[in-house]
Amino acid sequence: MHIDLSQIDWAVVLATIVGPIAAVLISIFIDGRKASRSRQHWVFSTLMGLRGASLSQEHVRAINVVQVEFHKKPKVIEAWKRFLNHLETDARAEGWDLKHRDLLNDLLVKMAVSLGIDAEALDIARGGYYPTAWANRAHSEDTVLGAKTKFAQFILSPEFDQWVQRMRDTDYRASLIQAVNEQNRKPAPLGGIFAE
């Protein structure tokens, strides 16, 4: 039994085999592009949303993945490199904050353009909303962290060992207790409108 297939028959067989494979490959390609675009949007929106909180973990994470997510966008990468180079300079230098804001603004503008987002530089430069309470809390956390660090340094220092030795000395402890008791017996100064 001999089967004679014409060109049309071969085309149908080929289309039956290749069609689904091509559809899957095209689907994978499109999904990959969507995922990449979604990650780029995440980086951009994170940096936009946290541009007033550049020390937040998410802001730092987003800055660190710019190179990966925008690797095919040379203008974004150049702006990112300038920004990163500035971050590695002394933040106490005069004008550092202004340059930081300008370079971040430039990076965000380049990202917006590469993503097809119509964002004017002025809109980005405004800095977004950052509640004063957040700034106060961050300052308080820094203060507490600084105190914990100093305490830890004290515990690890030779002065702590000397202090422990003094506290073991019965005479020293007794003199401390006596000083505290004497201080507690003194009447508190009245001050204010009751002061003489």
Rank of each mutant, 00 (worst) to 15 (best):
R101S: 06
W134C: 10
D169L: 12
V76K: 01
D4P: 04
H2L: 15
R173Q: 12
L104F: 02
G128Q: 10
E159T: 14
Q57C: 01
S6L: 04
P158D: 15
K72Q: 11
D142F: 11
P158E: 15
R51D: 05
R82P: 00
G127A: 01
F154Q: 06
I3C: 06
H41S: 07
G95C: 05
S54Q: 12
F83R: 00
D102V: 12
E159F: 12
D171F: 13
A91K: 13
E69Q: 11
A195R: 10
W134G: 12
G95T: 07
K110G: 01
D169A: 13
P158N: 14
A15P: 06
T46L: 09
V60A: 08
D123Q: 14
A79C: 00
H71L: 12
F194N: 08
N184I: 13
V164D: 15
N181H: 06
N105Y: 02
L25Y: 03
H59Y: 15
K73T: 05
D97I: 07
M167G: 09
R173P: 06
H86P: 06
T16E: 03
D31F: 08
W134N: 12
K75C: 00
N85G: 03
T143D: 05
S54M: 11
A11V: 10
D169G: 08
L107E: 00
T46C: 07
V180T: 00
T149N: 15
A119F: 07
L107Q: 01
P187R: 03
L176Y: 10
E120A: 05
G128H: 11
L104Y: 06
G116M: 00
D102W: 00
I193F: 11
L47T: 04
D97Y: 05
H41Y: 10
R101Q: 02
N136D: 14
A15N: 01
H139S: 13
K150G: 12
E94D: 04
V109E: 04
P158G: 13
F151C: 08
V18A: 14
S54K: 09
G116A: 05
A133R: 04
I124S: 05
I63S: 12
K150T: 15
D31L: 10
G191Y: 12
F154K: 04
V13N: 09
N105M: 04
G146L: 12
S140D: 09
T132C: 04
T143Q: 14
A79N: 03
Q162S: 15
F160I: 10
V60E: 06
I155D: 02
A135H: 08
T149L: 15
L103M: 01
I177T: 03
R185G: 02
I8Q: 15
R126S: 10
V12Y: 13
G127C: 02
G52S: 05
T143W: 13
D169Y: 07
W10A: 09
L98N: 05
I124V: 09
K73Q: 08
L98P: 01
V24K: 11
A135R: 03
G52V: 02
I28L: 13
L47Y: 00
L55C: 04
